[in-house]
Design a protein around this nucleic acid. Structure first.
Length: 305
DNA sequence: AACCGACTCAACCGCCTGCCT
DNA sequence: TAGGCAGGCGGTTGAGTCGGT
């Protein structure tokens, strides 16, 4: 049995808002505020809408100083960079883009930005698959190999950034495949190796991507913020002051997020299936998961203490 | 001009979290 | 401390629009 609905679904209007409804809601909130109770607000103002629907309409469309469409290159960069760092935390990403809503950013990412990036990566990946076919190998032929470089001497001299490109003899991805995933990230987002991204206030010592139950939040960009709410060379704070570790986290989380998306796309692509993956997307995704989880297990960057 | 598939984005759904009693 | 409730959030849907044939 599910939870009780927040309102009587049969008694409320659904679908697009009329200009009259917009006017009533906007006028009331501008004069009286929400009264800290969205659920009762529709009754107070006399419209047949669910309170949640009112809240969404206000936040995503009616409230002042909202921008719609026309994302700038700088906003693209911020969205992509934040997505790589923290994933689909749209409300946090939106908090760094004044005038943008989480819904807008989510739509923009899902319909445009992601495609732009994935098409870039996909092209490179297809090229590589063709090369592999010419040489008589396929990706799936290496499915049982254990990833991760185990050479302790090598490991000691590498940052995680380098380790993301691990020894092909011990990983299920070739160096070229790994580069093709990582490099477009750098090209697409104008990443400069010495640039440190984002002011993230972590409640614990570890990046959230390694411990999914933690809940980092972005600072409000107070002292170091530019007018857009984000600085081009922001400092990562609290859990680490070591720049190579910061880069490590950036690449590991970005690598994880985008690898997962890329390979899902590729695994579901008929053309790719036809030339090498034999429709075995589950197998391929399992290899990917194994790569990443083994990698994280073998190279913990931060102590939980 | 009509059809159709792709794309966009506003809106909804349902789960999770935190506050209040 | 537990339960109920509202707010907040991310994922998903579907109507409207656009562009190609």
């Amino acid at each position: 049995m599910g939870r009780a609905p927040c309102c009587d679904k049969t008694a409320v209007k659904k679908g697009p808002w009329s200009p009259e409804e917009d006017a009533v809601l906007k006028s009331y909130i501008e004069k009286h505020g929400t009264g800290n109770n969205w659920i009762s607000l529709p009754q107070r103002i006399g419209i047949k809408r669910c309170g949640k629907s009112c809240r969404l309409r206000w936040l995503n469309y009616l409230r002042p100083n909202l921008k719609h469409g026309g994302f700038t290159d700088e906003e693209d960069y911020i969205i992509c960079s934040l997505y790589i760092t923290i994933g689909s935390r749209w409300s946090i990403i939106a908090s760094q883009l004044p005038g943008r809503t989480d819904n807008d950013i989510k739509n923009y990412w899902n319909t445009r930005l992601k495609k732009k990036l994935l098409s870039k990566q996909g092209k490179a990946f297809h090229q590589q698959l063709n090369v592999k076919l010419e040489h008589g190998t396929t990706l799936s032929s290496r499915q049982d190999q254990i990833p991760i470089c185990h050479d302790e001497n090598t490991k000691a001299n590498q940052t995680l950034y380098d380790q993301v490109l691990v020894d092909p003899s011990t990983t299920s991805f070739t160096m070229e495949e790994q580069s093709m995933i990582k490099n477009p990230i750098l090209e697409s987002f104008s990443w400069e190796p010495n640039t440190v991204l984002f002011d993230i206030d972590h409640h614990d010592a570890a990046p959230s991507s390694y411990h999914h139950d933690s809940s980092p939040s972005l600072n409000s960009m107070s002292s170091s913020s530019s007018s857009t709410g984000i600085n081009s060379s922001l400092q990562m704070s609290n859990y680490s002051t070591n720049q190579s570790e910061q880069q490590d986290m950036f690449f590991m989380t970005g690598f994880e997020n985008l690898q997962a998306e890329l390979f899902n796309e590729i695994a579901n692509n008929d053309e790719t299936r036809a030339i090498g993956l034999h429709g075995n997307e589950m197998l391929y995704n399992n290899v990917l998961d194994h790569d990443i989880s083994s990698f994280i297990d073998n190279y913990p960057l931060y102590d939980n203490e």
